[in-house]
Design a protein around this nucleic acid. Structure first.
Lengths: 347, 347
DNA sequence: TTGTAAGCGTTATCAC
DNA sequence: GTGATAACGCTTACAA
């Protein structure tokens, strides 16, 4: 690595002190215009650029936001990152990303970022309940922390959540409004926060409509394609019949169910209506009716909250619910119903 | 931000010099076992963690790899990032990511990372030819640079490329082998490197098969869904007929063409076969035959190259071609052909 | 308006 | 083995 130009080289060349050069760099108004030009000239001629490391040390800040995602998020949360970057870049903040492999790893990452003062703020996709203590202690040490997805109980720090309950409610209500009554629900993992909330929304919608949510119609899934396929198959094997509609806790399972049905010769939505949750890319291409999770907006919201926290502002609201909007497409049979001129009368 | 524990606090508590504490931190063998335990104890009791900023400054290295992606990449390159992180994390390197909005922005980012010595190495998704000068000067300044996607002419630095030519050739050859002769090609933007190479592969396959690539069957696209739709529509309008097969330069266009055909009442692959390039998630769900680009592997390869460069090793090969594998699914009609017991005889 | 000098928290080079 | 002490490159009171 070639020796680089430092601030002192500028001092010599411009014949001023380090303080003055520093002032010029930092756009301080306390410099004579003539001096400034002289210094700028030296800077340009020597090709000087301040060392990030030295600045960090002297100013006791990093101009960096740490982002910690579980690696299982995959391309799924890339939009969140994009959103964070959009607003961070605007304020000249850097982003350091880390993908955690499991909760132990998350703990290490959070601790490292905070304790080595590697970042001014952290955005954490908070999937594991077990991470709570580390997060709390980071906050206690004065780190600005923004949570994505779910709050840490008892911790007052900005938290960006998905409105899972209303989203799931809307999806279920949509199916009910279309006249479906025997509706199956493919759940997510029982220990997953989003899954729990979506289930809650499902219950609420069913209750309101006065339709029972029976055990045979609640299928245990785990967000994976295989789990949905199996759930569907075992229902078919056992009952030799289909529900009128299926609502899956996420798109991956909805799509998998859709494919499985088609493999068995059933048509969607003619024989069974399907609705998912997330609105991943494939959902649009497949005409899957689903609930859209505004990933990018969650990212921008998180970054804004982080920047505010850094500036010491207390957040206006500590937990922010991002609206989850129902995207009506083919798979739920809304078009079918409309073309019949009336809600599908069934069951 | 609460005042934090520094190395000197440990010195006092353990009754040793800063040098010794530093040695302990850095696992130097030149410390008596007894001293080491004493120091470790103090570190644990006081909850000391070395400051990343101070280390960076003193050691003149950042333990950080910078990654610069064009934002248009979207979720598409999330896997690349995951791959980079996998190997970087293993060597305790951090990742700072930046999404560039256009070539001007890319230039700024590259320059900033390099000149402020913000990172030890950079992985750059090299989409714009205009970025070449900045990249070259970063390399000249001693920065370890790894390029993704395409080389900078005249610059010998590790470059991870997609084997676009062979990938496209394989796709086209597959269609030819299935017996199709009137094959349309939806191209990518003319100034895009990947697009140019894929076109090259198409030409090669057609030549080898002795089939002409006529102007009416080369449709100009721009990687966007809308461009494919329009290309297809205007062909339909003009000729009132379809080619036997369509090869699109990327999946987005292939999928869009597929949807457009279906809207017009045509069946895929029965009426028209379709093949894409990239193997995005939706491709699998839609049964689109396509050429798989190994994103994650590109990431790990890039990170490995970056780490080697940091250690001063000259790269074994300066440009590495990642194999692009044909994924045969429904849309190309291979199953159809097979069930007929012979290549589709057409044209 | 400009300069002096003391940090910022490590690492690294010497002696001892 | 261990301890002074000088870097590392910038910021920021405090003086002038």
């Amino acid at each position: 690595m070639k020796k680089h130009v430092t601030l002192f080289d500028i001092c010599k060349k411009a014949g001023v002190s380090s303080a003055t050069v520093s002032r010029v760099i930092n756009q301080s108004p306390l410099v004579h215009a003539r001096t400034r030009t002289k210094v700028m000239k030296a800077i340009r001629e020597l090709g000087y650029h301040p060392s990030h490391a030295a600045r960090m040390l002297a100013r006791q800040r990093t101009d960096t936001i740490g982002v910690i995602f579980p690696d299982i998020a995959g391309g799924f949360y890339a939009d969140v990152l994009g959103g964070i970057d959009d607003v961070a870049a605007e304020s000249s903040y850097h982003i350091v990303t880390a993908f955690s492999h499991g909760d132990q790893d998350t703990k290490k990452l959070v601790a490292a970022f905070a304790q080595e003062r590697r970042v001014d703020a952290m955005v954490i996709m908070n999937l594991f309940a077990s991470t709570a203590p580390v997060i709390k202690s980071a906050v206690r040490d004065g780190m600005a922390v923004v949570l994505l997805d779910r709050p840490v109980p008892g911790l007052k720090t900005p938290t960006i959540c998905i409105d899972n309950v209303n989203g799931a409610d809307a999806a279920m209500t949509h199916l009910l409004d279309l006249g479906y009554r025997r509706i199956a629900y493919i759940s997510g993992p029982q220990d997953n926060f989003d899954a729990q909330q979506r289930m809650e929304g499902v219950r609420r919608a069913m209750n309101r409509a006065g339709v029972a949510l029976t055990d045979e119609l609640v299928w245990q899934g785990n967000f994976g394609e295989e789990s949905a396929r199996q759930a569907l198959r075992s229902y078919l094997d056992r009952w030799q019949s289909l529900p009128e509609a299926i609502f899956a806790c996420n798109d991956a399972m909805a799509i998998s169910a859709m494919a499985t049905l088609q493999d068995h010769g059933y048509r969607v939505p003619d024989d069974v209506a399907i609705v998912g949750f997330d609105d991943i890319d494939a959902a649009r291409h497949l005409g899957l009716t689903t609930v859209r999770v505004p990933m990018r907006e969650m990212g921008t919201a998180a970054a804004h909250a982080a920047l505010e926290k850094i500036q010491g502002q207390e957040p206006v609201v500590s937990t922010m619910l991002m609206p989850a909007k129902l995207m009506v497409r083919r798979s739920c049979g809304a078009e079918l119903a409309a073309s019949r001129g009336a809600p599908a009368a069934r069951g």
